[in-house]
Design a binder for these strands. Structure first.
Lengths: 201, 201
DNA sequence: GACGGGGCTGCACGCCGGTATAGGATGCTC
DNA sequence: GAGCATCCTATACCGGCGTGCAGCCCCGTC
């Protein structure tokens, strides 16, 4: 991670925001207290309120910052091969916050943006396909966006299940290789898919 | 849903448990209050405490009940074709609770059980594969379990993204068809996978 | 019919945490 | 150097919520 060095990133306001992202990511919005955030940032309780007004507004500021960061990372990764498709390690401390944001109700715009991105990607990938997918692209993109985010959202469980700390380089490598394997292999063979489709009627 | 008719399911204790599952599923553990749960169940605040002792214990009782329900649904679905693979609509009111349980830190046993199930399924599916997957089965199973749960966990976003209410029969059908489509098509073609693998080194 | 226990209620306590406000320090402008 | 905005602290308020407790009702039992 190592957040980009905006000039503002040394200010108390930025320190508070970063501390909030860490605390909310770790404990969730409800359990994260303004007091703890203030202490982590090394400022007083009142200053948080002075800069952000309310806990909600603080969260929204975090959301905005997350949004900017994700867009930046996305732009950086645009040129590279799709090995970095799943943004789990690149996000660093933002990973946990993103997971909370997605599961605790906010962050809809971010998911929608990912869906749109996925839709464009799908449109390009469908160019060279013989059989026509009879499912709306939006629907496919939404499901695939959810799947792409699943490791991010269920991070602790995936770590435990894989028996590896995914924040370490080895863990990251293992995850990447696993993702490539999973993504390059269809889960349902043609006959199984046909059977399932038939079962649906 | 339509909870199995245990004899106990008419008792106040069961009503409280069901109300708790609904409230926690809807609002999360922190925001769900014992008072609201009691009111929903049509009982007094003290009775909740009388039956369950504490809010934590109430949650654990809900977890246990969820576990039983999931196991039952899983056993029922064992015989059928894998069209019902993703347990999103079958869970009914438990869906939201399961999502909370997975993302708010508990429910590790449930995820692990799904991983083990997936591992067995993978072992069977790998029987008839030519190329050897060079990734630990556990890792693959964990990632695939996460992906299978992604729609459950990110349900509201997927609903919004697909532009359909997935709790309706039409929405369910659309989701199923989409899942079949996604699962039956590899995301990465052989050359893209090779490129990604090469990029990893 | 007394008696005991489980299901159930109502109330009060105490803490925690978001909100509000008064005020001090610092630095810039005219 | 007076005025003022900005940054920052300390402290008080107060509502919400988990917890603890005293007691009532009802029903089975001897």
């Amino acid at each position: 991670m190592t957040t980009v060095q905006d000039p503002e990133d040394l200010t108390a306001r930025a320190r508070i925001r970063d501390a909030a992202i860490r605390h909310i990511g770790e404990h969730g919005f409800e359990r994260a207290t303004i007091r703890d955030i203030a202490e982590s940032a090394g400022v007083s309780l009142g200053l948080v309120r002075h800069h952000f007004g309310s806990k909600q507004a603080l969260r929204e500021a975090c959301d905005e910052h997350l949004m900017k960061t994700v867009r930046r990372l996305n732009a950086e990764a645009a040129g590279r091969p799709p090995a970095g498709f799943n943004p789990v390690t690149a996000l660093g401390p933002y990973r946990a916050y993103l997971a909370r944001a997605l599961t605790e109700g906010w962050a809809a715009p971010l998911f929608d943006e990912m869906t749109r991105l996925g839709e464009r990607w799908l449109a390009a990938a469908d160019q060279d396909r013989a059989d026509p997918p009879d499912v709306p692209p939006r629907a496919r993109a939404a499901v695939m966006a959810a799947m792409a985010l699943s490791v991010t959202v269920l991070y602790p469980h995936v770590c435990r299940g894989m028996g590896a700390d995914l924040s370490t380089p080895e863990g990251e490598r293992l995850l990447m290789r696993t993702l490539i394997e999973v993504y390059s292999q269809p889960v349902l063979g043609p006959e199984a898919a046909a059977e399932a489709r038939a079962w649906l009627g």
